[in-house]
Amino acid sequence: MFLFRHSGVGSDARFRALRALYRSCIEQNGPEARARRLLRDWLSPQQRAQFDAENYFEVTGSHTGRRYRVHYGTLSNVLEIDASGQPAIGWCFLPERALAAGDVMLAQKIALETDEAAVLALAHRFSPRLPSLPRVVRRAY
C-alpha cells in the first residue's frame, strides 16, 4: 500500500485525481464491465448494433425458429416476439448462481440458440403485458 504525506498546496487536487483514476479503473474493469464486453464479443454484428442502439438483442430459437428479445438485465428479461414484432410471451430463466447481467444474457443467448426446448421446459412463463390498472382520479382540494 502506498503512503502519502499531506504536503499542503495542491495535494488535495492530486488525491482527487488519484481517486478519480481509481474509480474509472474499477468501472472499466469491474465485473459488470467485463461481462458486458464478453457479451458484446459473442454477439453477431447485427445483434451488437441492436444491443448498442436499443439495449436488447434478438435471438432465433434452435428448435422452433421463434424470435426472442433478450433485454439488458437478469430477471424476466426474455420476451418471445410474435410475427408482428410485438412481445407475445415472457420467459424467465437464469443460471443458478448470481452473475453480472452481461453473463446472464450470454448464457440465455447460448441456451436459446443451442437447446431451446430444454430451456423453455425449465423456464417460467409470464405475461409481457402489464395488467391494466384502474385509473385513480385525484382531486385538488
Rank of each mutant, 00 (worst) to 15 (best):
R48K: 15
V104P: 00
F15C: 09
P31M: 06
H6V: 09
L106H: 01
A13F: 07
C25H: 14
V70K: 01
H63Q: 13
A121K: 04
R16N: 08
G10F: 02
E54Y: 13
D52V: 07
A101K: 05
G10K: 07
S11Y: 09
Q46Y: 14
A118N: 11
V137T: 10
R40I: 11
E54R: 15
E27L: 12
S7W: 08
G90Y: 02
A88P: 02
P31Y: 03
S24R: 14
H6N: 12
T60P: 10
S24T: 11
N29A: 07
R23V: 11
L106P: 00
L18R: 04
A49Y: 07
I110G: 06
D12M: 11
E116C: 01
Q28K: 12
R16W: 03
P45V: 05
Y56T: 03
E58L: 12
L39T: 00
P95Y: 01
L38A: 14
C92A: 12
R23E: 13
D115L: 03
R23S: 10
G10H: 05
L94F: 09
G30P: 08
H6G: 04
R48A: 08
A17F: 04
P95S: 05
H63R: 14
F2D: 12
T60V: 15
R5G: 03
F51L: 12
Y72F: 14
V136H: 08
D52K: 11
L94Y: 07
A88Q: 08
A88K: 09
V104L: 04
R19N: 06
A118I: 05
W42E: 13
A107E: 02
R5I: 09
F126R: 02
L39D: 00
Y141W: 12
T74P: 03
F51C: 04
Y72W: 15
A100L: 04
Q108I: 00
A83M: 11
Q86M: 14
E32A: 14
G30V: 05
